[in-house]
């Protein structure tokens, strides 16, 4: 089913998406919010610029965007997949608890903040370009990969992983990563570490037509929570 969004308001567009069964193609999308929110079993393909909270609470559906996304993509998503063939705005994958997000271009600030995991629910966020400041802030689980494709400088901003206490962040770069906060332990990823992300790299390659396996040969930083009591004296001496 094809829907021309143009100036349809968010509520009407989402009503039509919910009524449709199977695949939905949305054309000329201009900022309509909450597209696919909570969807379980659809494939939604979007041309244009979907609005904030795209795929929030997503619960198994697939969303593909040919264009740039805005803020809060995949907010609290539970399972399913979101593929953005452009850039993403701020708050990408906020509090994600399952599923996968692939962004070909760059992400704004606060990508992957407060991601979490539980048993086999393990969210993954892959960003092709660079990420803005506060990447993975208060991260509690899951995996973030920043590939820095076409980026000369370090592909992350300030305050990466601040307050992180679970999960891991992979950052592909030949530059030195300076100024990481005390709550983060960083090292150069070993071969075995990179095997962990190989399936995601292959999937990234399949979505965007690049060699995912070759990406695994490059140099990555692996960021994990610092387990040496980084908060020991944050509030009281104990």
């Amino acid at each position: 089913m094809r829907i021309v969004a143009d100036n349809l308001d968010s509520m009407k567009l989402n009503q039509r998406i919910r009524k449709a069964s199977g695949s939905v193609l949305i054309d000329r999308c201009f900022g309509q919010r909450y597209i696919g929110s909570g969807s379980k079993d659809k494939k939604i393909t979007i041309y244009g610029t979907p609005g904030n909270a795209l795929g929030s609470y997503l619960d198994g559906a697939t969303i593909i965007v040919h264009g740039n996304g805005q803020d809060m993509i995949g907010d609290t998503m539970n399972s399913g997949e979101i593929v953005i063939h452009g850039n993403a705005g701020d708050g990408l994958g906020y509090a994600m608890r399952g599923g996968m997000i692939f962004v070909r271009g760059s992400a704004g600030c606060r990508a992957g903040i407060h991601m979490k995991q539980y048993q086999d629910q393990k969210p993954a966020l892959v960003i092709g370009g660079k990420a803005g400041s506060f990447l993975g802030e208060y991260m509690a689980g899951g995996m973030i990969i920043v590939l820095g494709l076409g980026i000369e400088d370090a592909p992350v901003g300030d305050f990466t992983g601040t307050g992180m206490h679970g999960g891991c962040i992979y950052i592909r770069t030949n530059r030195e990563l300076a100024g990481l906060p005390a709550q983060v332990h960083s090292e150069i990823a070993a071969w075995e570490d990179k095997q962990e992300i190989l399936p995601l790299l292959l999937r990234f390659g399949a979505h965007f037509g690049c060699d995912g396996r070759a990406l695994a040969d490059d140099r990555y930083y692996l960021l994990k929570p610092n387990t040496a009591r980084p908060y020991a004296q944050l509030y009281t001496k104990n």
Partner: peptide
């Protein structure tokens, strides 16, 4: 505030970006 509000009046901008804080 949102990219869509630019695209609605200029569908093919030469460049679109979000400045840092």
């Amino acid at each position: 505030s949102e990219e869509a509000a630019i695209r609605v009046v200029e569908p093919e901008p030469d460049r679109v970006w979000a400045p840092k804080g």
